[in-house]
Amino acid sequence: MSVKRDSFSLSFAVGAYGTAFGAASVTAHFSLLQSCLLSLLTFSGASQFAVIGVVGAGGSAISAIATASLLGTRNALYGVRMAPILKVRGFRRVVAAQVTIDESTAISTAQKEPRDQITGFWHTGFGVFIFWNIFTLLGALGAKTIGNPSAWGLDAAVPAAFIGLVWPRLIDTRTRLIAAAAVALSLALVPFTPAGVPIITTALLAIIVGWRA
């Protein structure tokens, strides 16, 4: 069945990025256990990179949690879309919620048949979960064995991962202008605010622009 094949290839491809997360997380002074727990428990790529990005840049735990959680709000909206398709309760709903991410929702909502929508969600959700966690461990172990992260370019891998995540979203002039404003605002705040604050403050831009239309 093609939905299972699609789920598997997407799961493997996305899961492999876990290597970049594991390596970046160790570089940002998170332990092996902390890096693996982020992938097991938070299990949302952008939020995980945000936590290590904010803490790695010297930000407080509060800024890290706030930034990561704002990036996680889209998963709540995915849940709204998935609930009527999956129709699960109790423990199954807990499991469904944990694997509600960009990829499982995307594969599911791309299917026509309700049965394929359900299959696509579970296969992609579990598939990404398994590969993402395996590759996180491998990346973290790899980064642990090398010495100075800067000598291996790992300090540039973090912003590269972020730009890779945001690039496909910069689809028109409006979003590019908003992105440019976010760069300007965050860098302007750097000398005057504690680390981490410049990042979370850009959420105001999203609220102001999104509020008005």
């Binding site: 990179f49 990005g53 912003p159 945001v166 976010a182 860098l187 410049p198 850009t202 999104g210």
Partner: peptide, 13 residues
Amino acid sequence: LIPIVLLTALVAI
């Protein structure tokens, strides 16, 4: 819009 502003700021910082 939230991911666009936060991820871009994370790139810059």
